[in-house]
Design a protein around this nucleic acid. Structure first.
Length: 499
RNA sequence: GGUCCCAUCGUCUAGCCUGGUCUAGGACACUUGGUUUUCAUCCAAGAAACUCGGGUUCAAAUCCCGAUGGGACCGCCA
């Protein structure tokens, strides 16, 4: 039933409409189209659907391009690089569409409609309340030639409607199998606002045909649009591509993912500190799986393993926790050099004076927090204390279990003494030396205070807080080593002064 | 409201086509324990699902029908 026809050249496309920040749902469609094309050595095309002059903006075209490039979903033909079947922006080929409109008009397959938008809206409301399908009544299709000529001469505003035949349209969907629609329920649809302003259902057919798109892989929201598009296709005598309608990405409440309820802008995920490889990996798993228990995939692995046959039919909730988990995996998988590079922009944006410390130190900081990072942006709040001169925290934070202020003070005094004895110049300021010097003292300290012998927290906890100002951090020794002797002792003294 | 699509743990899913090996597997999240000075990582364990009702069959998560539930679409947006 599900056959991926690969006899002709595979050509897929993604066709963003530049009316807003590039949508994560579009990105997943792009991914699937890209993977399918790559798998069969086909071509993946980027086409900008900017027929809506009011809502389309250049910056959003750029946003789509930036998003896709960031994700590593690269096209073989597109507005920026051209290709055999350009232009790849619909606004640049209005004359082509106009010729097709004329053709349909000449052949009597489309007609001028002079009904006003207000009248139509009122009729639609009326039909809805009466429980009928809200369809156009075909009033203007019955206009005589003279009436049309007169209206046109009077410069009455019009739209172009396509005559929808009353028939059953069947098509085979690679994911859903055979689907059938009764187009009698559709009504004549508007294909252009005027000769220079064609509409989506019309242009999509023309472009897919002219760009020789073999497989139309898109979201399920287009499934019920497919029948009308096929009718236009047939009227224009164009070959039908193979359709595959993807399950939707869902909000937690299982409605179609929308910006009202979720973050949908791809670049917002970038800003939040998600890695493109994590987002790719996460998205591909939303509706597809390899049939094995493997869950981590690189893009190039996916280019080989992806298959439309393993695509799910039901919608998938966008589960941010899983994304975080995968992102954490990819962060831990990075080299320190690379991860430092990735974290740097966040530290700079936070206003930390990164230039003041050496690259080596910076890498040590990143290294100390690598395993705690779920998103790159978290590096800021995790490591801010390295970049501050004075820490602010309440003295209660210094307390481990039921220690008294005096006991905490004793603990910090001990740290101060031991650390002070370490010769920084002689290379003794490192984790190993600190452990060697302090651990035996902890034992004595615990004995003296009648604390449980093997509980290092009585020293380590106040030390951690003194150095980081936080209750959770990397190892105090690791922090001390990065901070350097001078700053470390200063922070211990600051803590003592709090008590 | 009409049309179409869909239905396995809370979530993503394996299994369904080709019925028995399913006391339904994995992952995330959750709970507990171990490691750790803390957090995180890592390791171990646990709780957690075949929407319901009929039918076919020796046998149904798997095939058929119906119900229910959810979703999408019904624009001079895409």
């Amino acid at each position: 039933m599900k056959k991926e026809n690969t006899s002709q050249e595979i050509r897929t496309r993604i066709a963003p409409s530049p009316t807003g920040p590039y949508h994560i749902g579009g990105a997943r469609s792009a991914l699937y189209n890209y993977l399918f094309a790559k798998k069969y050595n086909g071509k993946f095309v980027l086409r900008i659907e900017d027929t809506d002059k009011q809502r389309s903006e250049l910056r959003y075209t750029q946003d789509a391009i930036d998003s896709l490039k960031w994700l590593g979903i690269i096209w073989d033909e597109g507005p920026d690089i051209g290709g055999e079947y350009g232009p790849y922006k619909q606004s640049q080929k209005l004359n082509v569409y106009e010729n097709y409109i004329k053709k349909l008009l000449d052949e009597g397959k489309a007609y001028h409609c002079f009904c006003s938008a207000e009248d139509l809206e009122a009729k639609r409301q009326d039909q809805m309340t009466r429980g009928l399908a809200p369809i156009y009544d075909g009033k203007c299709s019955r206009l005589s030639k003279e009436e049309i000529e007169n209206n046109l001469a009077e410069k009455k505003s019009f739209v172009i409607r396509f005559k929808v035949a009353n028939k059953k349209v069947k098509f085979h969907d690679l994911i859903r199998g055979d689907v059938e629609f009764d187009t009698g329920l559709l009504g004549d649809i508007v294909i252009a606002k005027d000769m220079q302003s064609p509409l989506y259902h019309f242009v999509v057919i023309i472009d897919d045909y002219e760009m020789k798109i073999s497989h139309v892989i898109r979201g399920e929201e287009h499934l019920s649009n497919t029948a009308r598009q096929i009718l236009i296709q047939e009227a224009l005598v164009m070959t039908r591509p193979i359709y595959a309608h993807l399950p939707l990405m869902l909000n937690p409440d299982r409605s179609k993912m929308s910006k009202r309820k979720s973050d949908v802008a791809v670049l917002d995920y970038k800003k939040a500190g998600y890695l493109p490889e994590a987002l790719i990996n996460f998205m591909v798993l939303l509706g597809w799986n390899p049939g094995t228990e493997k869950e981590i995939f690189t893009l190039s692995e996916l280019e080989k393993e992806f298959s439309l046959e393993k695509v799910q039919k039901a919608g998938a909730v966008f589960n941010i926790q899983k994304l975080d988990n995968i992102n954490g995996y990819y962060i831990r998988d990075k080299s320190i050099e690379k991860l430092t590079e990735l974290c740097l922009p966040y530290l700079i944006e936070a206003g930390f004076n990164v230039k003041e410390i050496t690259r080596l130190k910076l890498e040590k900081i990143i290294s100390a927090y690598k395993e705690r990072l779920k998103k790159l942006s978290e590096i800021v709040e995790l490591t801010d204390f390295f970049f501050k001169d004075k820490l602010t925290y309440g003295k209660e934070l210094l307390q481990w279990q039921k220690m008294t202020d005096t006991e905490i003070k004793d603990a910090l005094l001990l740290c101060d003494k031991i650390f002070d004895e370490l010769d920084s110049e002689a290379g003794e300021w490192n984790i190993k030396k600190m452990e060697e010097a302090l651990f035996p003292e902890i034992l004595k300290f615990n004995l003296q205070k009648s604390y449980p012998e093997n509980n290092k927290g009585f020293i380590m906890w106040p030390l951690r807080v003194a150095l980081s100002g936080k209750k959770a951090s990397a190892s105090p020794f690791e922090i001390a080593e990065i901070l350097g002797k001078q700053k470390t002792l200063k922070r211990i003294k600051d803590a003592i002064n709090l008590l």
